[in-house]
Design a protein around this nucleic acid. Structure first.
Lengths: 155, 155
DNA sequence: CGAGAGTTTCAATAAATATTGAAAATATTG
DNA sequence: CAATATTTTCAATATTTATTGAAACTCTCG
């Protein structure tokens, strides 16, 4: 991997880290993203990223579970390969939509927990509920729209 | 703070933590959210959450900087108070929009880094760019829409 | 079934992060 | 300006999280 792409992978990892996810996940995803050919083996990733096989194993599992990466095998070869899953970004956004739902529910639970006469707290929580309720609906709609317009063939 | 609200604040903190932010931030924000009256002093927060003053100080600063909490003073009183900032959720979503922009830009940079003949990598990156470009535009639009419909009076 | 290629597990360790608490700084009052 | 209330800073520490590497495991092939 030449200098420039190594730099890219590292920066990708830092970005990922800022989203609260392990740096190594960003490295692996970044490496797969710019790899040619598009799939790499666990061993290949370990070598490319100068990381232990153990940590590649753990990281690929997490990425597969998150739906960002898929594992594939090749006829006549023992090793497993990994590549960026088509539709990965859509999946990621879908999990963000789940977070939005969680926040909305937390607002609703807040309204149950707060005394009926706590006006300002109720107002805060109602705004929170309404806002996240709004996003919940809109995101749902937009995910559908995207799939309709662009995702017709894949998956 | 009674049992039920303490539980709520802790659960709120765990949710916050899952988004990659410090647990204490979630505690402080959760406590302010369900507090009646709506503002609490640094000392009050420390006592309520059984946390050190130092960590309350650090946490409130971060929350203020993130735009989720505001500091206020009261005439005739020395201490500072904190409360949930009106429009906090909108601000938070705006910072998520910034993240979306960052991801889109990272996709574009990927396209510069990858050789012209690396078909599949280019396809990956183009899908990423288009997807996040789409969300960028849509989120921008929705934030405007929300402000128009609901945020007319505040701020 | 045994050998070899490859992957996963997991205890140990390294690294990063959050939290405390005491001292320093700051602001307000009389 | 001294006394007091309050907040901030920061070095030390506790806690959490990521990473390694060696051993165990799994699979495939001859």
């Amino acid at each position: 991997m030449e200098e420039e792409r190594e730099r890219y992978v590292e920066d990708f990892a830092v970005m990922f880290e800022r989203f609260g996810l392990p740096r190594m996940m960003g490295r692996v995803l970044g490496a797969l993203l710019v790899s040619n050919p598009p799939e790499l083996s666990a061993g290949g990733l370990a070598e490319l990223l100068r990381a232990s096989r153990g940590s590649i194993s753990q990281t690929t599992r997490s990425l597969v579970q998150m739906g960002l990466v898929e594992r594939l095998t090749k006829l006549g070869e023992r090793r497993d390969y990994f590549r960026v899953k088509p539709g990965a970004w859509d999946d990621l956004m879908r999990s963000q939509l789940e977070s939005v739902t969680t926040v909305r529910q937390m607002a609703e639970r807040g309204l149950e927990v707060v005394p009926p006469d706590a006006q300002s707290a109720r107002q805060n929580l109602e705004e929170m509920r309404d806002f996240y309720g709004f996003w919940e609906g809109q995101m749902h709609h937009l995910l559908k729209l995207w799939k309709q317009e662009r995702g017709g063939s894949e998956q």
